[in-house]
């Protein structure tokens, strides 16, 4: 029973991070019809930047209280959003009129570039930020010890899901976003600045990925290749949930996380294979995913 509670919490922790990555991927696809292969690398970039900032802050000794360190996470995510705001107009904009194969390829090129930029800047060794985890107490849950930081991550995941939903469905910009996603030319004809919507949508998607990296790094450290690994899992999430659907990203992240936690517990050898098989079966039976419309 205690083990079950811990495993559920672990699944929720994992789902929070996956949701942040997959929601960004899904948002970008929904609005711009681009499958961003570099999305995982942007998540890794968020992890590296945040870990680096936290390391600086601790080395600087500027009142290393945990609360301040937490503020560094959105800053790391914002930095990734800025990178995204540069990428969209320079690399992606020239390609919207061309076949989607080219968009896939350019983001694959971007993936290769980002991976090496991270290797160049931060080297091959893992970059840790576990001070943040240590700054929070370890709590008892049904008699089991559990780091409070993981609960914070679950909270952030939930808040992010709510915040993104409110943003897309309850704000003026959200209306513009959905209008552009449904019919780009009509939105443009009605006077929307589609270019601006695209930059913002891409930057928000990158922000989500960066935030995912930022909240995962204190408990797992930033390593090379984490982005490439994360991307395929995010693919599984959006394929199961439906590309371009926020609800789908949430449900998909939960499904993938619980299957994965159960897999590690009961069938570790085929844990990943089962996930990819689920994605394959969903694509076969319901190509648009559980909540997709496109």
């Amino acid at each position: 029973m205690e083990i079950l509670a811990i495993q559920i919490l672990n699944s929720l922790f994992y789902a929070s991070v996956l949701f942040l990555i997959a929601a960004g991927l899904s948002l970008i696809f929904g609005v711009m019809n681009i499958v961003n292969l570099a999305h995982g690398s942007l998540y890794a970039l968020g992890a590296y930047i945040t870990a680096w900032l936290i390391g600086r802050a601790i080395a600087g000794g500027s009142g290393a209280s945990a609360i301040w360190l937490f503020l560094l996470m959105p800053i790391g995510a914002l930095a990734v959003a800025l990178v995204g705001a540069v990428i969209e107009p320079t690399l992606l904009r020239p390609l919207y009129r061309r076949a989607e194969e080219y968009q896939l390829l350019v983001t694959f090129g971007l993936l290769l570039i980002l991976e090496d930029v991270m290797r160049f800047v931060w080297g091959g060794l893992p970059l840790t930020a576990d001070t943040v985890v240590d700054a929070l107490p370890i709590v008892r849950i049904l008699g089991q010890l559990y780091p409070a930081y993981n609960l914070v991550v679950i909270g952030i995941g939930g808040i992010a899901a709510l915040g993104l939903w409110a943003f897309v469905y309850r704000t003026r910009f959200g209306v513009m976003l959905r209008a552009t996603s449904q019919d780009r030319r009509m939105a443009s004809a009605l006077g929307l600045d589609v270019g601006r919507v695209y930059i913002l949508a891409f930057a928000i998607g990158c922000f989500m990925a960066g935030l995912g990296g930022a909240i995962v790094v204190p408990s797992q450290a930033a390593v090379l290749g984490m982005g490439v690994d994360a991307l395929v899992l995010a693919f599984v999430v959006v394929v199961v949930g439906g590309l371009g659907s926020l609800k789908g990203a949430l449900v998909g992240a939960l499904i993938v996380s619980f299957v994965r936690t159960a897999g590690i517990q009961f069938f570790p050898e085929v844990e990943l294979a089962v996930l990819y098989l689920i994605a394959g079966i969903v694509l076969l039976v319901r190509p648009t995913g559980l909540f997709g419309t496109a």
């Binding site: 020239p94 080219y102 350019v106 090129g109 290769l112 980002l114 090496d116 930029v117 290797r119 160049f120």
Partner: peptide, 20 residues
Amino acid sequence: TEYWQILLGVVLVVLVLVLP
């Protein structure tokens, strides 16, 4: 170079944008 991926990445991006 240790950073060969970046070279391949740049070649790929340039190919797509300039030399499809």
